[in-house]
């Protein structure tokens, strides 16, 4: 069905909803990428990629080598906080988007 291809570009779909929805979607993607960046840095970075270097240091006041701590404690705590931040930000974005749609109607 090649004749349908041009008509199927995202811009042609639901034109009346589109500006608000694409603004919402862009903010959503931005939030997501920033949080995923932190996710990768804490889990894959601190816990694995630089863990051997971090292990030269200790978590202040404890017997935890820092890389070991990241792998077995720190990264998990970070993951919980990341999802919490995501919930708060997205639910706020949702209600902003909701108001935007309401006022434009």
């Amino acid at each position: 069905m090649p004749e349908q291809w041009p008509g199927n570009t995202p811009d042609m779909v639901q034109p009346e909803n589109n500006p608000a929805l694409s603004r919402y979607w862009r903010s959503n993607l931005l939030t997501m990428f920033v949080l995923l960046g932190i996710w990768a840095a804490a889990g894959l970075g601190g816990g694995i990629l630089v863990a051997d270097w971090l292990n030269k240091y200790h978590l202040p006041g404890t017997g935890y080598p820092l890389g070991f701590w990241f792998a077995q404690q720190g990264s998990i705590m970070m993951f919980v906080i990341l999802i919490l931040v995501y919930c708060v930000l997205m639910n706020r974005l949702d209600s902003k988007h909701h108001e935007e749609i309401q006022s434009s109607n």
């Binding site: 996710w39 889990g43 792998a71 077995q72 998990i76 999802i83």
Partner: peptide, 28 residues
């Protein structure tokens, strides 16, 4: 973890880190 030491962290990170992907990319 008890026999693997540091490397046991793969299970800790792997089985929790996935929830971030789940929450951000799929669940909603």
């Amino acid at each position: 973890i008890s026999t693997m030491g540091y490397s046991g962290g793969i299970y800790l990170m792997g089985w929790t880190g996935g929830y971030v992907l789940l929450a951000l990319l799929l669940a909603p």
